[in-house]
Design a protein around this nucleic acid. Structure first.
Lengths: 177, 177
DNA sequence: CACAAGTTTCAATAATTATTGAAACTTTTG
DNA sequence: CAAAAGTTTCAATAATTATTGAAACTTGTG
């Protein structure tokens, strides 16, 4: 059973820790748990696959938390299990291609949030009412405007998901700069 | 002091309540408080300006909460104060143009999150190290890739903020469909 | 200028959400 | 198949975040 073969460059370790910190701090803005964000950051900057033990140690979290969090990352498609031959223990690697990472996140959030929202809005908009009533008209106008917005968002996100590596950035830069 | 002049259509009121509910429920996904989302929804679907009292009553929240939440909405630029002549009380109206609303939200979130993130990433990337060390190389590659992503996001968001009413939707639809 | 009407603040508290840890479960191995 | 190694689950608890409500403050009024 070989120990960490890392030369443990202290400055680098500190920079990584800062990065994990930074990623963890912005978790609150995106409605995900701190552990999830931190574990993702850790796996992103680790060249080698990490075991549950290592995740627990590096992030200072419990086994239970590590187990649930790594599974959630796999659900998002952001992390893969890696079985080493002759090893009982499971190891985990992050998807490293950031375009792919972006696609995963967009796909999941679109499915969980945007699609659900669109369904609910459609249901609300189907409600009949007196078109002479200003309250009713206002309500329907707002609903319609929001639906336009969600539809646009849907188009954009679907487009991004299908996009090729450079196509996307090229188009965007051409479009906005 | 005139009472509510509303004919209070019960079906409509229920639909509005559902909308407020829906909006409030998705607050968790975006890192904002439920009160903030609900109050925004309420003001969006109200044709008339509402007083603090009315906000409190409709959302069933305390005066303190109402006061802080309405202020936060004004900080975002999503709600305006409306002073009625001869009235002491303050009234509040939402920005109703959804493109404008989108711009406000993008502007603020970009400022608070993206810009801050870019600064931190740049700082981390400036860290010197041994280019032969694979750990160091991996770390720098990830940082670089993320910076590319944040830069693209920046371009896109800046573009959206400047966009004209139909220009945006047209372009997007043309681009992605 | 004293009072009334309205607004803001913020420490205390409630509600929510994340995390732990131990027990149950699963899989591998001698 | 018993023990060992590893993983998952979930009720209990900790940590965090949102909300309340009462006191302080501000502004307009007779």
């Amino acid at each position: 059973m070989p120990d960490q073969p890392t030369p443990t460059n202290p400055a680098l370790e500190q920079a990584k820790a800062q990065f994990i910190q930074l990623w963890g701090a912005s978790s609150a803005n995106w409605g995900i748990s701190r552990s999830l964000a931190q574990m993702h950051a850790l796996l992103l900057v680790s060249p080698a696959a990490l075991s549950t033990e290592e995740l627990m140690a590096q992030l200072q979290i419990s086994r239970g938390n590590a187990s649930m969090t790594v599974r959630e990352l796999m659900d998002w498609g952001l992390v893969y299990k890696e079985l080493k031959p002759g090893e009982r223990r499971e190891y985990f690697v992050a998807e490293k291609d950031m375009l792919q990472v972006t696609r995963c996140i967009i796909r999941e959030r679109k499915r969980r949030e945007l699609d659900a929202m669109k369904r609910s809005l459609a249901q609300l908009a189907a409600l009949p009412g007196d078109p002479a009533d200003p309250e009713y008209r206002e309500f329907h106008r707002v609903l319609g405007d929001i639906q336009q917005l969600t539809d646009s968002a849907d188009s954009v996100l679907s487009g991004v998901m299908k996009a090729e590596k450079n196509w996307l950035i090229d188009k965007f830069l051409r479009m906005f700069l």
